[in-house]
Design a protein around this nucleic acid. Structure first.
Lengths: 347, 347
DNA sequence: GAAGCTTATTTGATCGTTCAAATCTTGCAA
DNA sequence: TTGCAAGATTTGAACGATCAAATAAGCTTC
């Protein structure tokens, strides 16, 4: 309705005038309150409140040469069922970032080269002062570029090349999948399971290997010998169908299997279909699908990951040693679902 | 490695100096090339390329008073299985926005009031010049606030209150669910289905009512009388379990049902479980789950939605009448999956 | 009560760009 | 040649904030 004037936003000078002080004092009240005398500070605060003043984002960014923005790449479709993880991570990042005055902006890219082109664009335009990468691999050209060009970044997912792992320039946060899977396996054993199988990805993906290792550790501690363990483990590519096939094969080989841990909710869903829900299955990622169907899963706790990532980033920003070291391992949480609404009904 | 100087980014003056022209000419080359003589323009372009110059985002924003940024709220978890829709919409928005020099930033909010607080924060800080809302309802305080404060915005999802629908200040894009469902139903009938059921949400949600209406239209056109139609329709709350229950009840009542259209992939999954995959089911949203399991679904074509939303936004920006009217209806695409990898195996 | 110090506040310059107005070129008719 | 409009380019100012240096105010101390 109103329509009227475009209603110019109040500036620091307007506040200053109203409070009877100078621009700089207003600025100080906001950025280094300690330096302003109590009475003045209060007067300025009421003026700010009265006018509904807020610092002009771009003006501040121009002067301070900080974009206060972190860029995150949004994947094309968030591959398969497990896509929601990035979603939740983004949400956490946006929420936690805002608490620290950071804006999260999105970019897209079709391949690593394209992504580097984006880096260049954003960096050259001073549009961003840090990047969050959602996963990296050994010899990743993206991290190489970022390091080469002195750009702040954190990866969600540890770098899997041995040398990179300790590279002080590479900051990362990751979820300790090994620990999570181990704990899930232990819980299954503790509640009476006699043989717990594992359905995971082919060797070579660092993440998958870690998850399998966690399961293997739990079995070893429970007294299983290596031959027995080997028989209880099977491999499948990510995908519901291939998970179903593999689970079926494993069950044929090991009819007495009474629980199954998997490397992802996608595989878990396949396994559930194969077993008709008769065998408890634990997935990984705790996706909405796991919740809807009602099977157990290991939650990555992306909220913690986001907080850790931001912590690392502003450590980088201040060029101070990022706490103990340049990375953080978050412990996932096992979410056991006793009897999902649909588990028994799948058969 | 490099380490060295912080390497100041080149400015418009650096380019000007190198090309032997003034600042403003460089600016003109970028913003109104027509006004610069051909030869000069070329010289400036090579200088730009040589230095790898790009306009400083914040400086430009400060001067032009445009943030070139649109804000989108990221939902807490993206409810259930269908969450991926927002995900894909965001991706499309980011990608298409970038083509037009727009940045997509995220914000979060726990409820409408909180969201309005965010509006205020972003608007007062001149951090954003338009909002995209992912759905609205009748008397939505958010759209009221935005209109009241002359803020540009578009909603994905038409406003369901009658008066709002034609409000020239409310710009919206929506997917014509009625049309999509109708088309899917027709396709099923065309390939020989004799009775096609509908599993949808309780009346009252505009979106759900539209979808049901599309199915009803198709049946009517095919010569079904209203009593027959009514018997083929059933209602369920969103959720895999309730979908399964409802589908089961419907099948008991109508054993000869040979196809089922549903209001969401979540309901579709429930129906598939109930029928053991024996009855073809069409979902809505074409989520990754539909693709993974292999059942048919209606795709919202979020990419088109994103483009339309951006078109409307810059129509608003230029205060020119937004094409035919302030809204766009996108036709969804029916994705028929003949024999999903898992369909027959669910039983 | 004036010198000397600390604390509080103000002034002028600057970040990098674009706007508005001024100046310089060019082309062409008189 | 001169005049003069149209076109091309340049100059000065401004966007709104913060930095750095300068000034003013408040407290001690002798």
């Amino acid at each position: 309705m109103a329509g009227g004037m475009p209603k110019r936003l109040p500036t620091v000078s307007d506040v200053a005038a109203l409070a009877g002080v100078s621009r700089q004092t207003v600025s100080n009240v906001l950025n280094s309150p300690a330096v302003v005398r109590e009475g003045t500070r209060e007067r300025v605060h009421t003026a700010i409140a009265e006018l509904g003043y807020r610092p002009h984002t771009s003006a501040r960014r121009l002067r301070t040469q900080r974009a206060a923005t972190i860029a995150v790449r949004l994947d094309p479709v968030g591959g398969g069922i497990s896509g929601a993880v990035l979603d939740r991570f983004l949400h956490a990042l946006a929420e936690r970032g805002e608490e620290r005055g950071l804006t999260v902006m999105l970019y897209t890219a079709v391949d690593p080269d394209d992504e580097i082109r984006q880096f260049r664009r954003l960096v050259d335009a001073a549009a961003v002062d840090a990047f969050v990468l959602a996963s990296t691999y050994h010899g990743d050209p993206r991290t190489e570029w970022l390091i080469e060009h002195d750009q702040a970044f954190v990866t969600f997912g540890r770098p899997w090349g041995i040398p990179d792992l300790t590279d002080p320039k590479h900051f990362w946060v990751d979820v300790d999948g090994r620990h999570g899977v181990r704990e899930a396996t232990e819980q299954l054993l503790a509640r009476g399971a006699r043989s717990v199988g594992f359905l995971g990805w082919p060797a070579g993906s660092g993440t998958g290997d870690e998850r399998r290792a966690g399961w293997a550790e739990a079995l070893r501690d429970a007294g299983f010998d290596d031959a027995r363990s080997a028989a209880l483990s099977i491999v499948a590519e990510e995908g519901v169908a291939s998970g179903r096939e593999a689970a079926r094969a494993l069950l044929e080989r090991e009819p007495h299997l009474d629980a199954l841990v998997t490397a992802s909710d996608t595989l878990a869903l396949g396994a559930l279909i194969a077993t008709g829900g008769r065998v408890p299955v634990v997935g990984f990622d705790n996706t909405p699908v796991a919740e809807a169907i009602g099977f157990s899963s290991i939650d990555q706790r992306v909220d913690e990951v986001a907080v850790a990532a931001l912590d690392l980033l502003d450590a980088v920003g201040r060029a101070q040693s990022a706490g103990p070291s340049g990375h953080r391992l978050i412990e996932p949480r096992v979410v056991m679902r006793e009897s999902g609404p649909l588990l028994g009904l799948l058969r």
